[in-house]
Amino acid sequence: MANECNGCEQALAMEKALDEVIARYKDTKGPLIPVLHEAQAIYGYLPFEVQLRIAEGLDLPLADVYGVVSFYTGFTTKPKGKYRISVCMGTACYVKGAEAILDKFTTTLGINVGDCTEDGKFSLDACRCVGACGLAPVVMINDDVYGNVIPENVENILKNYEEA
């Protein structure tokens, strides 16, 4: 499931890990959100097949599961890149021009917000306040924080992630 290499070892291992998570939370109160968090940690995202397995495992309608996934920005139904770019769109960053930075990333990478480049290297998201308003506008790439970003910096920032 989820992976193209259907039946290969990695996919089976992920499936087994997911089933263990479901079993661990099944009889607890409010199991859905913790299961979704751990499932996303296993798969990197929450595609249809994963949500269906969770729904059946927890005996919930799939619509319930999908409703929760679609409500929280922390959950995603699309795969993420090796490097996850988050452009902060909190109030401070927004007034300091975050939108132009986000636009610059979309044109440079050729992807829309929420999507991932074809090679799986970069994914782009707009996020809520990261709590570094003094550095606004802020961009995060995985755990790296870039402050006082201007659109002209974008290409240089991306260069940090070029691989030999």
């Binding site: 949500q51 309608p61 799939l62 619509a63 319930d64 599961v65 999908y66 409703g67 679609s70 409500f71």
Partner: peptide, 17 residues
């Protein structure tokens, strides 16, 4: 249970998974 509130805020709609 084939429908639920999907999404959030102004863009919430009732729909299927």
């Amino acid at each position: 249970g084939v429908i639920d509130a999907i999404g959030r805020g102004f863009h919430t709609e009732i729909g299927s998974p």
